[in-house]
Amino acid sequence: MAVYKRTYKGYSGPLTSPLWRFTVLQRYAFKAIFKSRFLLIGYVACFFVPLLAICFLYLNQNASLLAMVGQKPGFLKIDAGWFHNFLTAQAVLAGVLTAFVGPGLVAPDLANGALPVYLSRPFSRFEYILGKGLVLGSLIASITLFPLLTLFGIQSSLVGYQWFEKNLYIGGGILFSCLTIMVVFILLGLSMSAFVRWRIVAGALVLAVFAAGKGFGAVINGVMRTSNGYYLDLQYLLSTIATDLFRQTPEDPPISPLSAWAAVITFCVLLLLLINRKLRVCEVAG
């Protein structure tokens, strides 16, 4: 007679809905990221300029204070250019944040064989990428999209509905520019860490994509006497798109906003292909 000891009891508690299961990855990700004191300090420092900007907007509309220095409210012009400059500064910080945070999300999972553990659960590759991307995306959004929209809201509330109505396109520019930056940076961070698996080199590669792209683009422009090198300059491409969304495009730009969109989309597709190729459960050991 066989004896079966039924001691194992499976989990019978509530399950996260399959639709939102990708958000599970976020639960511990932030704790792991901010375990590094350097990253925590760096992240907090990213809010320094937005806080300064809020004070600036307030002071710029404070009639009593400005009267003391003989100025009228709004003596400094807050327009699309101002928001564009602010976005540029925050985007640079977002790029550095991507270089430090992005590789730490995927590379350790690949190096330590954790990916098969994730994917042996009811959890797809797409959900994994989405979940990891969301971690990075939410950090980027917190230093670009949210501060910019907050500033836009504060300026609107200080000046009035007319300003808001007239400059609604700035809000649209902020939203779409930040979303574009987020998508590109997320894909760049994830793909580089999947590509090299070594967190530090992946981070250096993220920085190198910006620096080397810009430099090599300039080399092509210089040597070939052309402006096609700008297509390799990711920073320039994103800046061209943002300039267009903020309605600031100069009369004769080296490359048109439409071409910049096409180049960025191509770049994103290439990064997606790289992620698809590298983020696999099976691999052949060499």
Binding site: A208, A211, A212, G215, F216, A218, V219, G222, V223
Partner: peptide
């Protein structure tokens, strides 16, 4: 152009990275 590339791309980016 060679001088420019050497100074601004080669030294600062290529050799650095």
């Amino acid at each position: 152009i060679f001088a420019g590339i050497f100074q601004f791309f080669y030294l600062r980016i290529a050799i650095f990275f």
